[in-house]
């Protein structure tokens, strides 16, 4: 990877105005609308959102893994200079696994139960024709050890069902790393795991990422994970990025009413009074079928007004790194936030 270091400042991944429409029986589902972000090597972007926010669809679109009847549109979707929207199926196949790879939430569904761990690990490497079996085997053992699996050599001949959930997730990570990808996309990689294992897996990912200078997109609904892992955060609601910025700015000064609401929903050990009433976001995520206009959070927002149905401006912080989409100025929202936190304490 060292030969790439001179391009460190150029984004590895550059997305501009990504839109995903899904045709359904009831009409067009506008699942993802106008998403833009850049990601450099060595950076971690966390996309945080709830179910139905389109965060997983976005990652599948990047990997070129959306269903046949779904075509993503974008002004730009570039991976290291390759435009992904127009790339051939062959180009995408060569990119996937070799230069960008994905870790899924449920390892049992993405590991093939009929093959040994070793076969599956080595296949990732030999499939792209770059090496022989012996070298692939050595690499598999090396990576299994790296992800903290003891007796790596004997694990190669085991089948997925013989491993525990935590071990399987480690195998998944090892498999994703076999070809030394430049971009790794992890979709809720620790949601199915125990908290103790979660911390270990996240540490491991962060370490390997630093070592290999990979870019990482981590998709999660867990704000705790986001805070501890991310460099950059993108908050997604109903198919749109409502707020983006560096992790410390997002958590120190959350600006969009949705981000603020989310942070008020979770009890903070040592800060929230035990047994007190937690903040809530009333209502549910709206249907995105048919025409979608204005701010989609208006049905659940305490600051909503008729103007929320119109065009929503994008505010940018003085530093230029922190943006959010709302009709209100950050200052207008500030006072309310202080009041509601006060009410919760």
């Amino acid at each position: 990877m060292s030969q790439n270091n001179f391009r460190q400042d150029i984004p590895l991944l550059s997305i501009d105005n990504l839109t995903i429409d899904i045709p359904t029986a009831a009409g067009t589902l506008h699942a993802v609308r106008g998403i833009s972000f850049d990601l450099k090597r060595g950076e971690t972007l966390c996309i945080v959102g709830e179910s139905g926010s389109g965060k997983s669809l976005t990652s599948l679109a990047l990997m070129g893994l959306l269903g046949k009847n779904i075509t993503p549109r974008a002004d730009k979707m570039e991976f290291d200079g390759v435009e992904l929207t127009t790339a051939s199926a062959r180009t995408m196949r060569n990119l996937r696994g070799a230069r960008m790879s994905m870790i899924f939430q449920e390892p049992m569904t993405s590991l093939n139960p009929a093959y040994t761990i070793g076969d599956q690990l080595m296949e990732a490497l030999t499939l792209h024709g770059s090496t022989n079996r012996k070298k692939a085997r050595a690499r598999a053992i090396e990576l299994l050890e790296k992800v903290g699996i003891t007796a790596a050599e004997s694990r190669l001949s085991q089948y997925p069902h013989q491993l525990s959930g935590g071990l399987r997730q480690r195998v998944m990570i090892a498999m994703a790393l076999m070809c030394e990808p430049e971009l790794i996309i992890a979709d809720e990689p620790t949601t199915a795991l125990d908290v103790t294992i979660q911390a270990q897996i996240l540490r491991l990912l962060a370490e390997l990422q630093r070592e290999m200078n990979m870019a990482m997109i981590l998709i999660t609904h867990d704000l705790g994970v986001v805070a501890r892992v991310a460099d950059k955060v993108a908050v997604m609601y109903a198919g749109e990025l409502v707020e983006t910025g560096p992790v410390d700015e997002i958590f120190a000064a959350p600006s969009h009413p949705y981000t603020r609401g989310l942070l008020r929903c979770i009890p903070l050990p040592g800060k929230t009074k035990r047994g007190s009433v937690l903040g809530t976001i009333p209502g549910i995520v709206p249907s995105l079928v048919g025409e979608v206009n204005g701010c989609t959070f208006r049905t659940r927002c305490e600051h909503a007004s008729p103007a929320c149905r119109g065009t929503i401006p994008l505010h940018t912080s003085p530093t230029g790194t922190h943006t959010f989409r709302c009709i209100h100025q950050p200052e207008d929202l500030e006072t309310d936030a202080v009041q509601s936190t006060g009410a919760n304490a």
Partner: peptide, 21 residues
């Protein structure tokens, strides 16, 4: 220790629980 609170400055904790369950 393994509880991840939304405090970015704390980083990812090391639980020292080396082995699996």
């Amino acid at each position: 220790k393994s509880v991840l609170t939304p405090e970015p400055e704390l980083g990812i904790p090391d639980t020292h629980l080396g082995m699996s369950y």
